[in-house]
């Protein structure tokens, strides 16, 4: 895997005054940058700190925050647990139907979340293909916290799996072969060679999938419904708050911004250390 010159150009890690980015390029970057940041600043400036602190202690707000953190942590853990073997399989082996599977994994990312919600309802709803069977043995998933996690895994796992595939593919096979020749078992190769080498990218994929789970709205409201403390995650609380009490919605939006920014920054710091 030879490093191309193009790569060196795009990935130049730092800039100094001696190699200042071309002025034209900087100017051309401005509109999209401003466009992306402006709405976020608009929220920040709109939030009244005193009102925000009042809302922060409101039961619905704290319930929504803890439910969001709880469910997104679970869905990220499930994506990691079940997504890693699949990603490794797809990264390492060529077999019939491989590209079909690869395309199928893309689907939940492309589908509108509302379609995901309807699909989950058709599968796991009380009269769904699997759900009716589950219902017979006394398990009902719709309207439960489990349904929230299922909705999040459905829409967010592909983000982790796709990134993990490229993470594993980026680990040089020669290193793995060398370890094998030295007598390492396949598990040892995976555990002590592949994972540590792929780790930064895997972590990036995990965070991406966590972020998607945290922001999940459409599939959740359709499949899991909306009940404070049980299925009302932050995005749902923000949506309904928008119709009822704008300050409540702004408070929650602000918290999401802070939490998301904090996690991204942290991950970036970790990656900077490791890379």
């Amino acid at each position: 895997m030879a490093r191309s010159t193009a790569f060196r150009l795009t990935a130049r890690p730092t800039w100094r005054f001696s190699n200042l980015a071309p002025l034209g390029l900087m100017l051309a970057s401005l509109p999209i940058l401003a466009y992306l940041l402006f709405p976020i600043l608009a929220i920040i400036f709109r939030v009244d700190l005193r009102v925000m602190l009042e809302h922060l202690v409101a039961r619905e707000v704290s319930q929504a925050i803890s439910l969001s953190l709880f469910t997104s942590a679970w869905s990220t853990a499930l994506s990691l647990l079940f997504g890693t073997p699949l990603a490794y399989l797809l990264a390492r082996y060529q077999f019939r139907g491989r590209s079909l599977i690869d395309t199928l994994i893309d689907l939940p990312m492309v589908l509108p979340p509302s379609v995901a919600g309807i699909a989950l309802l058709m599968a796991f709803g009380r009269r769904g293909m699997l759900g009716s069977w589950l219902n017979d043995i006394g398990i009902s998933l719709a309207f439960t916290t489990v349904a929230v996690v299922l909705a999040q895994v459905f829409v967010s796992a592909p983000f982790y799996i796709k990134t993990a595939i490229s993470a594993f593919a980026g680990v040089e096979r020669e290193l793995e072969y060398a370890a094998e020749i030295d007598g390492a078992s396949p598990w040892q190769v995976f555990r002590y060679m592949t994972v540590p080498l792929a780790w930064p990218v895997l972590l990036g994929g995990l965070v991406m999938s966590w972020a998607r789970a945290l922001g999940e709205f459409g599939a959740t409201i359709i499949f899991a419904g909306n009940f404070p403390g049980r299925t009302q995650t932050m995005p749902l609380a923000i949506y309904l708050g928008f119709e009822l009490d704008l300050n409540l919605a702004l408070t929650l939006a602000m918290i999401m911004l802070v939490v998301s920014f904090g996690v991204l920054w942290l991950v970036k710091a970790i990656l900077r250390q490791r890379v």
Binding site: S166, P200, G204, V207, A211, R212, K268, V275
Partner: peptide, 24 residues
Amino acid sequence: MSQRRTLFVLMALFALLLSACGQA
């Protein structure tokens, strides 16, 4: 190689978060 991926991942991640925040 992994640095480039990391960069891409982080960029995608940021874009994603913006969309997730606005989604509601």
